[in-house]
């Protein structure tokens, strides 16, 4: 099993910009919450069916901490595609890099997060499935594997869809799939000593030109989220009247 993981800014953090770019050095980083569900699910599957859990990340720098978190939770192995050329590369390129890395491993299952909380793209898992020519089951909330097949519940509008598919496959994890464990102290100590396996783009046979972002940034801005709201703090009966009037116009 391979679990694709990435680090994201803590969702509570303020995201600041500088010259049209996010000021990354000021951010606090965490393992993408959806990837945490992915790691946990792989560990649960390992406990039930055996096998090996490999955590995989691709970025220009700073991926070690992310991988150590997965190792501390119990992953067996960590692979880091580290290359300066990955700086600023979006999901289109990342999916290609991950696909190349995964295709060199013998695997039954690739697990990604439903989306990352920074890009909110929900792209890489699906693109990876297409590039690897494996079935994709996205936004899963329950998983059961039997033999070469599996059954999963997906979250869709208004309900839950149950699908069945063959392995190998790519799954993306939705909240509700499991409760990720906290790394134990021995786990954290062990993770510090575990070796991280490094790969670079040259060793994967990928050239810079294959990674050009197909969408170019024109601008980056703060949204005009703040509204010039009217505050009603006086008599509550009057507030209710005025609010009713507002609601009648709004709907």
């Amino acid at each position: 099993m391979v679990v694709c993981i990435k680090r994201v800014p803590d969702t509570g953090a303020r995201v600041e910009m500088d010259g049209g770019r996010v000021r990354e050095e000021r951010l606090e980083w965490v393992l993408n919450p959806y990837d945490e569900f992915g790691v946990e699910e792989a560990l649960l599957l390992k406990a039930e069916h055996g096998g090996k859990v490999t955590a995989l990340t691709a970025r220009a720098s700073g991926g070690e901490e992310t991988l150590r978190k997965a190792l501390a939770m119990g992953a067996d192995e960590a692979v880091y595609v580290k290359d300066a050329l990955l700086d600023g590369i979006d999901g289109h390129g990342i999916a290609r890099v991950l696909a190349k890395a995964v295709s060199r491993m013998r695997i039954d299952l690739v697990i990604c997060g439903k989306q990352s909380t920074d890009s909110e793209a929900g792209y890489v898992g699906g693109a990876l499935a297409a590039l690897l020519d494996m079935p994709l089951v996205s936004a899963i909330k329950r998983l059961r594997i039997t033999g070469g097949r599996f059954e999963a519940d997906r979250e869709v509008e208004g309900g839950v869809e149950t699908v069945e598919a063959s392995l190998p496959a790519v799954l993306t994890a939705q909240k509700g799939l499991n409760e990720p464990r906290y790394p134990s102290l021995p786990g954290i100590m062990r993770a510090k000593r575990q070796e991280i396996k490094y790969l670079d783009l040259a060793s994967l046979g990928i050239g810079r030109e294959e990674l050009e972002n197909p969408l170019k940034r024109v601008s980056l801005a703060y949204p005009s989220m703040e509204r010039k709201g009217r505050m009603l703090a006086g008599d509550i009966g009057e507030s209710a009247k005025e609010l009713a009037e507002f609601i009648r116009h709004a709907v």
């Binding site: 969702t11 303020r14 996010v22 980056l220």
Partner: peptide, 10 residues
């Protein structure tokens, strides 16, 4: 992007 904290034009 970032849960609505930023808006990007591409």
């Amino acid at each position: 992007l970032y849960g609505g904290k930023l808006i990007e034009t591409v």
